[in-house]
Design a protein around this nucleic acid. Structure first.
Lengths: 402, 402
DNA sequence: GTGTCGGCCGTCTGCCGACAA
DNA sequence: TTGTCGGCAGACGGCCGACAC
């Protein structure tokens, strides 16, 4: 019983969709606002690279538990699978409002891999963050039953409909839809000494319904159709411990690998969930982005790079670091994998939170080799070769690199 | 982050157990009271029969979703695995208080299967329901904020400490621990016209904390150590939809099968969860119980039988039916499996809820063959033969059949 | 510019016996 | 015997400007 929507939908609002019971479209802008500025979903129909290792990392993070048993080897399973991407849909957890995406991936046949021909459009477009939105981390006063929600002035002026300041005090009713299409009404008033924007009546119901606590964040969006949306982001990740009393963590990891192995062996589609805020890194990468990073970028130990991170206020900032090594993350289980193959050191001492290992497509090396404009498509002369970084026929092309 | 306890523990209360963070013993009596009178956990150390089909049924029921993709075949995986049972532990979901058990199963080696020798103790003892307990389904008044909890008179007299009736009105404070060891305090008062037992102060916090609604049930237990415990049972199973945005249902089913297949191939232990109130049937059966039902009971079409069911008030009653067929539930995937191999018709027309297929060990045929007392142990002359019901060396024995 | 507080009013919680099923 | 209700008193929700950081 999920609320879902196709990401390829161009709807800005919510539509009922009589498909398999009660599914609804959810607002794409809102989904991306909740997911964060760094999250982008690959476009429907393109070729992507799927990393079982990354998927495994997400499962571990989601159920808050590492593998403790023996996972059988899947010798036939490559560390990355080139897949056709079918059916990307955006969802939100009914209980927690956590955003996630469902993707159906179909591994390419050996013949299709041989004939790989990259189109410029397959690089993927970066996620479009809504223009008129704000994100505020809730204070103790915001979540207390004693009062309402204090709206930062700039935020109110940017994303709320303009108040009629001739009234004393200026008041209006706001209506906003959440990820599930439920409407929430708030009294928006401009009062106090000094004057400030407040949400009063309606706010506490929202806080208790969503079980918000100080430290969580709310997001308000004002789109071009004069609709308002609101979403939430919970601060406490450990709270989101999925109580997985359904299947043991070992069985989950085995299932993930076996499903991918089976799909790869039979070239049949399989389904995965991507939880942007639970997963340490994206594990379904547009093929063109992967190819560009792996085959068009020379990296070496000592090289400087930049990498994007999300800030508290849901904007982005760059952190700088130095490449300290290039090696397999798991030489035994996943030899010759590009997943987190780059060991890095971070410039700032507060870098305890940042990963000591990253993947090539996550970073932006500061010294890049010049790219030559070339014909429209990129043609591979060899089939994808068993996880080894040999891709000689892969030529530079106009894939919109910068 | 789970609260757990070993079922082999003889503790009646709660003990801290500095094992891997914060695990605690939970009360075995309370667990069984919440699980219901028909649920019995196999004893630690005995041989059990594990049914992947039954496990799969539980997963489907838990995530409220059938398999919709193609599940690969596991030709090496038998429809039942004989396992040694390690490490049975009882748990309760932190969010919902739903009880479940974790079991570690180790498939027997072919040699061990050949040498199977059943001990009488392996039949398993039926779950001991607590003696002093009551279970009440909450009314609208019980869950309303307007008042407290009306305690049925017999229940109060049986499981609450006796009141001092010389007081006017008689009042006392009750303290009871839930499945997680949290204490709840209630004011127990005997008042009104006519007089009745009520829980007032403290009741509403419990209701809101556990998110109880009319139709849910509470269970109070009074054990021999003068301790009180309380548990809950939710009426609405569809509410318990586990939002499994972690892994697709297909991957879960594949994982379950692959984990069992891997364990069977390597004779290594694997872990499963058993949710008594989510699963349609137990899928880990004591070997002796299985053997008795399959090899010591002759069933045929037209035979009458009885089967136990749980009532609203958490007691048991028998329903009668007739065997209408004996065949494979899934001839393609699981040929020659005893899982739900018996097609039945039920006597009462209100039988819409009851399964049209049952397993041999769930029913009690009304015409049984006499059992002959025999030597202490039952010896198998042949190894377990690939799911086929040939078990010729299996002799009748003193396994406490009735 | 905004987080927290004291003050104040109104609503709802929550304890009581009445009454009826 | 026990589910629901009207009555009532007190606690807490929730709107306000004051004040300080």
């Amino acid at each position: 019983m999920r609320l879902s929507s196709s990401s390829s939908s161009t709807n800005t609002g919510f539509n009922d969709q009589s498909e398999e019971g009660e599914k609804k479209c959810l607002n794409s802008e809102l989904w991306h606002a909740c997911a964060g500025p760094l999250v982008s979903l690959p476009q429907l129909g393109i070729r992507v690279v799927y990393f079982p290792q990354g998927h495994s990392e997400q499962v571990s993070a989601s159920i808050n538990k590492e593998v403790d048993g023996a996972i059988p080897n899947y010798p036939g399973l490559q560390p990355q699978l080139i897949c056709q991407l079918h059916n990307v849909t955006m969802h939100a957890d009914v209980e927690t409002d956590e955003v996630y995406a469902q993707m159906t991936l179909q591994p390419l046949t050996p013949q299709e891999q041989k004939d790989i021909c990259l189109l410029p459009s397959e690089l993927g477009t970066p996620s479009k963050q809504p223009t008129n939105y704000f994100c505020k981390t809730l204070t103790a006063s915001d979540t207390s039953t004693h009062g309402g929600f204090s709206v930062p002035r700039r935020a109110a002026e940017k994303v709320f409909p303009p108040l009629d300041y001739s009234q004393t005090p200026p008041v209006q009713e706001l209506i906003a839809k959440d990820l599930h299409g439920n409407e929430w009404k708030f009294r928006h008033i401009f009062r106090g000494q000094p004057k400030r924007h407040l949400l009063t009546t309606g706010w506490s119901v929202f806080v208790s319904a969503k079980r918000l606590v100080a430290g969580d964040s709310v997001i308000f969006i004002w789109n071009e159709n004069n609709q308002m949306f609101l979403g939430i982001r919970r601060a406490s990740r450990p709270q989101t411990v999925m109580p997985s009393s359904v299947l043991s963590s070992d069985s989950m990891h085995i299932g993930l690998l076996a499903a991918a192995a089976h799909a790869a062996a039979t070239n049949s589609p399989f389904t995965i969930f991507y939880n942007p805020r639970a997963s340490p890194s994206e594990f379904v990468i547009p093929l063109a982005k992967y190819a560009k990073a792996v085959y068009h970028t020379r990296v070496s130990v000592g090289m400087r790079f930049r990498m994007l991170f999300e800030t508290e206020e849901s904007s982005v900032r760059r952190y700088m670091g130095t490449i300290t090594g290039i090696s397999d993350l798991d030489p035994v289980r996943w030899p010759s994998s590009h997943w987190r193959s780059v060991k890095v050191g971070w410039d700032e001492s507060t870098a305890g939170e940042r990963q000591p290992r990253v993947s090539l497509w996550e970073i932006e090396p500061l010294t890049t080799f010049p790219m030559y404009p070339s014909p429209f498509s990129l043609r591979l002369k060899r089939p994808w070769s068993a996880g080894l970084p040999s891709f000689p026929g892969f030529k530079d092309g106009d894939m919109g690199m910068n």
